[in-house]
């Protein structure tokens, strides 16, 4: 091969298009595994919700719908800023990209802060943490406990994904300042965007499943 290879082109690829297509496909495949991962949890949740509906209903009523809704709104906004960031990256607008990355990171951190610092903390004080201090007086106590097992586990795994996402964005921000992205090389931003939207979508399912079971009362 005599033609000049772009510095952004990894050795195993022939050209930038191929590299770009490969990394997008890789990301989508990865997201497919994530769907199956959460899918196992959703399946377990559905089974027990069917078996123990009254308990799940009662458990859900103990969550704070408003705080959950606020968090949902924050995440949706963060998806918007992320999408704008990707656009800025494709256009090679570095300052704009940095701004949107910072905004996305802040929204993400606020979400996690509210989730853990406000909601989990409150649930803990209310003795709703299974295996640690769970104490619930009332009918279906076992099922309510099971609801909280799923609540903590699902939101916990989701929060972990958020933390990973924020860390990735932080790295991207650093790379942006180092001038690593340009109109030819924005792949990592685009991939991080896909991941971020995916984590948001998971929440879009978690929110109604966990918070809104009893909303019709």
């Amino acid at each position: 091969m005599s033609e000049v290879r772009s510095a952004a082109l990894a050795e195993q690829f022939e050209d930038l298009d191929q590299q770009h297509e490969a990394s997008s496909l890789g990301m989508w495949v990865f997201l497919a595994t994530e769907i199956m991962f959460f899918g196992g949890l959703f399946a377990g949740y559905s089974v027990y919700r069917g078996l123990y509906f009254p308990g799940f209903d009662a458990g859900s009523a103990l969550l704070n719908v408003k705080v959950g809704a606020l968090n949902t709104a924050l995440l949706l906004c963060s998806s918007l800023t992320m999408a704008l960031g990707v656009r800025a990256a494709t256009l090679g607008k570095r300052r704009e990209l940095a701004t949107f990355l910072v905004l996305t990171i802040l929204l993400g951190l606020t979400f996690v802060g509210i989730k853990l610092g406000v909601e989990w903390h409150h649930d803990y004080l209310e003795h709703l943490a299974p295996g640690i201090n769970f104490a619930y007086e009332g009918p279906n106590a076992r099922a309510v406990e099971l609801f909280f097992v799923f609540y903590f586990f699902m939101t916990g795994v989701h929060a972990l994904h958020m933390v990973v996402g924020v860390s990735i964005l932080a790295v991207l921000l650093w790379m942006t300042f180092r001038g690593r992205f340009g109109p030819e090389r924005y792949n990592p931003v685009e991939m991080a965007g896909l991941y971020w939207h995916f984590v948001d979508i998971i929440w879009i399912f978690l929110y109604p499943l966990l918070y809104l079971i009893g909303a019709h009362h």
Partner: peptide, 16 residues
């Protein structure tokens, strides 16, 4: 790709 994550989550639930 599609099967292994389900085993992963199952084992996590066992650990939990």
């Amino acid at each position: 790709i599609l099967g292994t994550p389900v085993l992963a989550i199952t084992l996590l639930l066992v650990a939990l």
